[in-house]
Design a protein around this nucleic acid. Structure first.
Lengths: 69, 69
DNA sequence: ACGATATGTAAAAAATAGTTTACTTTGTGT
DNA sequence: ACACAAAGTAAACTATTTTTTACATATCGT
């Protein structure tokens, strides 16, 4: 994959709004806590499925959580 | 990852609308032709970055191309 | 009939996502 | 000061995506 656009996200913000811990979110979307931390720290590029799960959890669109410039 | 929701896509449709070959799309978004074929055949769950690249190519939202039920 | 282009399959290798475990740090409440 | 929960780091492991290569089939123009 190229190093074109930058992927960032507002996961921490949405998470705080709902008062969820990273652990809570991890459990709700079915991944480990490490995965949530890594996404919040922009360590990698999650799968589209996981992006959809997170969007569904917060009742928003994928593009509300994840930004690509 | 769980086997919750099903991920499908309309990539072939958007591609045909623009008259692009799989090869064209692959080149434009910077992946191999196999990757495009595999996505169209729902063989897997692409990365979010790639989903964004495809959406950008067709000037639509990620959720216009990819459906998650 | 021939060459060129588009689509498909398959399988091994490389790259990256996601898990697990264990330890550290930071904040908050008592 | 202490205990506890939340957040962070790191490393080794597993699972999955993506690449590469090679070959098959179908279609289209000449």
């Amino acid at each position: 994959m190229f190093e074109s656009g930058q992927l960032t996200n507002r996961l921490a913000v949405y998470r705080a709004q709902k008062g969820y811990s990273q652990q809570d979110v991890a459990k709700k979307v079915g991944v480990s806590r490490q995965t949530i931390i890594s996404i919040e720290k922009n360590r990698y590029n999650p799968s589209l499925k996981l992006a959809f799960e997170l969007a569904r959890l917060f009742d928003v669109g994928v593009e509300d959580i994840f930004l690509y410039q």
